[in-house]
Every structure is written in C-alpha cells, then in structure tokens.
Design a protein around this nucleic acid. Structure first.
Lengths: 224, 224
DNA sequence: CGGAGTTTTGATCGAGCTCAACGTGGGTGG
DNA sequence: CCACCCACGTTGAGCTCGATCAAAACTCCG
C-alpha cells in the first residue's frame, strides 16, 4: 500500500465492483404513489426491533435511519443506512434480522407489507419498483460483504464514495451518523475510523470542514 | 478468548444468529418438477462468468459448486458453496456478480430464468419454492457478512457447522473444497485455515481422519 | 463556566498475514 | 513396483495492521 491518491481508490473501486459510481435511480417509491402513513421518529429511537415480524415496509421521507444488530459481547453491527427516498424493512424472511433506529429526527412512511404487495399485484410499475428495491438491497448486501474483506482505509473510502453517491450536495457530504455508527458499519474500531479520516485529510484526499462534514478532493465523480 | 469448547461455540453461534442450527428444507426444487436440462461439468470448470447476464437458473444434482469473484490484485472471494439440491444463479440483478465453477465433477440442471418465472406464474407451489430460495439466499448473505466480522477461529467454526448442517453423513463431513477455497470463503489466509484446523484438533473439538474429512466432537447438534 | 458526550491522538499488544521451508499423498512413467 | 513429481497441506518466524487502553481536545448546551 503506497501513495494512495483518492482518485486511485475510486478507479480501483469502480474496476472491482462497478457499482458504487453508478448513479442509481433515487426517486422515492412510496411517495410517488402517495401511500403509507406518515410518522415522525426522534433521533436514536427504535422503529422496529430485531426479532419483530416484518409486517411493515418503510420509506424515509426525511432524516436518516440505521439498521442495527447487537451481539451478546456488546458488539454492534450496522447493516445499512437509509436516507430520504430509501425503502427499508424489506428484509429477507418473515422477521427482521436487524432492528431499525432513526439516526436523527426523521419522518418516515409506513405501509403494511401485505397491502403493498397486494397493490403491487395490480400495478405493474409499482411491482417493478419493489423488485428494483429488493434487487438493489441484495446488491448492497453483496457490496457490504465484499467491503468487509478490505483494509480499514479501503473500507472508509468505500463508505465515503457511497455517501458521496447518496447524500452529497454540491460536493459536500453532511454525515448524519457518528464515528461510532461508521465504525460499526465498516467493522472497524472508532479509533481506526478517526485515524483514517486524519490520514486521508493529511494526504489531501479529503477535507473535513467539521467532523460531520466531508469533501472529497481528487476528481470525485460526484462533484458536478 | 480462552477455553473454547466446541460446544460453547455452537451455543454462542445459535444464540447470536439463530440460523445455523435450524434444519432447513433441503428438498430439491427443480428436480421435483422434473424441469431443467441435465448437464455435466468437470471439476474446476466454469458454469457461468462473472459479468454474464443471469439468464439461467441452476440446480446442483450431484457434486459441488462455488461462486467466485476475482480481484485485480489477485485476491479471490468465494461467495457461496452449493451442493446437491441447492439452487444457484438466482443472484441480485440482471447479471451475475460472481462466476460459478464446479468444485468436483458435478451434474447440474439448467433452466431459463424466464421459463422458470413463467411457470411460477402458473404454479403457486413453485412460486413459493422460488421465493423460499431467494429468501434463504438473502439470509445466507447476511450470515456470511456477519461471519466476516469474527475471529478466524469463529469463522472456521461457523463454516464447519454450516457444512455439518448441509453435507455431513453420520457425523462425518466430507469436504469437497480445498483449503484455499475455505480460506477465500472465510476471508482469511490459507495458512490461518490450516493452523486453526490444527488447534481445533489439538483441543479435541474436531477430528481430521484426513485433510478433506472432518468430525465434530462435542455435542454437535447434527450428530444424530 | 462546567460537564457530558464525541472525536482525536498516543502507546502498546496481539491476531493474522507474508514469506519460506518442509511434509504428504496420489498419479505417472520408467 | 518403485522413483519421481507436483499439487496440496502443514509448520515456522517475523512483521504489520488494527484493536485496546488511556488520556487529551473539542463541541454543544444548560
């Protein structure tokens, strides 16, 4: 590992997975159909628990959500982050295997899974959207699994590129989640996350206006 | 980490994920419907490539299959192993993101994805089976991702328990895959896999009649 | 200003990687 | 049938990345 320019990271990532840099359709699915019950959730409050039955499907209207799995040893794994327009709760089986919590005060829409599927049975376009959502979710799972096989620096870069793709505004990434959340998502310690931010900054690959804001420097594909 | 009895591992694993020990329905899906074209594949020959479109779905009739992703740096990640009765090729999107190779000489059945889905549209039970397959696949992905956050020893134990669940015959696990395959599945080096086999043997948690055969010792839930 | 939570920085340690050598078993040809 | 070979597996030694423990700096609010 020598002389990692951020650009190099990006190129390598795209070469490897060909996914992160693809601009995906971010149009909201439920909102477009004006369905689902609007709800407010306060920061760090639970939306559903780890072993609840997955009877509902959710869409983030505003704010940010994380899915969480707690281990007996006190460890925590974050499965995914969801932002405005994202659908979550469509997990594998009959029950959730993660719990979901709001990261910041958020607004979400809730709809019964059965109702949604019933509607999808009558609306080809909605069905297509749902298939797209679960397909995208599976691809995300794949990417996340692959990421866990990389070095700490590569993981953080993957994360930043993913966030750049999903929530950057004019080249600035405003992170709603804490360092701890990032650490638990990447499967590294909080100290390592912090240190890696520092080294990336030192290398001028990124800039940190403050600890919750990031700017990618070298030819980020998102800076448009 | 001290005094790991194998039993303890098992209990902990089950507690954590509640999945490995559940006896899942292993009935073949395609064979039951007598569909799909039978084919033979020689050991280490490719079944489909990494970026081919996912037009076909496959079932292992006999033998063993691995899905593989190669990295630019020469690294390799194995996504999954499939054995007799397992369906594979039902990956996320339109193209595969892994390639598939036979581990040993194998027989498989191949069916066009469109045909299968068309049939499923007319056969509720087949549709249910397919949903079950993709649900199970997603759960497997989750488990694999979580496993990547554990120590080398825990990973190997997870792997052995999974294999015990899936291919043990009377308490004996005959592994069709090499140490390298196991290493690339677990995300550790081949040396670490070998060393961990040795320490588990030293601790009498397992016995190794030969390098490709394993017996779990302490109250494996599968030894019936 | 003070206090609690969050982030950063420092110092140390160990699990697992790497490089290298050595064993082993199964097949092939003399 | 043995000698050889080659792929696979095991073992050893040293080193590195990242975890852990500890403490300092920063931030947000009351």
């Amino acid at each position: 590992m020598d002389g990692h320019m951020f650009q190099a990271e990006i190129v390598e990532r795209i070469e490897r997975h060909g996914v992160l840099a693809r601009s995906e359709c971010r149009a909201s699915a439920l909102t477009r159909w004006m369905i689902g019950v609007p709800m407010k959730v306060r920061a760090s409050h639970e939306i559903y628990g780890e072993w609840e039955t997955a009877d509902y499907v959710y869409e983030v209207t505003s704010g940010a959500v994380r899915t969480v799995k707690l281990f007996a040893d006190g460890g925590r794994q974050i499965g995914a982050f969801y932002f405005a327009g994202d659908i979550f709760g469509l997990e594998d089986g009959l029950d959730h295997s993660f719990s979901a919590e709001a990261i910041v005060d958020s607004k979400i829409r809730v709809i019964k899974r059965r109702t949604l599927f019933h509607m999808a049975g009558k609306d080809r376009e909605l069905a297509r959207q749902l298939l797209l959502v679960s397909t995208r979710e599976m691809a995300r799972l794949h990417r996340h699994a692959l990421m866990l096989g990389q070095t700490a620096e590569e993981r953080l870069c993957s994360f930043l590129l993913e966030m750049a793709e999903r929530i950057s505004v004019g080249g600035l990434i405003e992170l709603p989640m804490s360092r701890q959340d990032i650490a638990d998502y990447l499967g590294v310690s909080i100290e390592t996350v912090s240190r890696t931010f520092t080294t990336l900054t030192a290398r001028s690959a990124i800039a940190l206006p403050n600890s919750r804001a990031v700017v990618l420097r070298n030819g980020s594909p998102l800076t448009e």
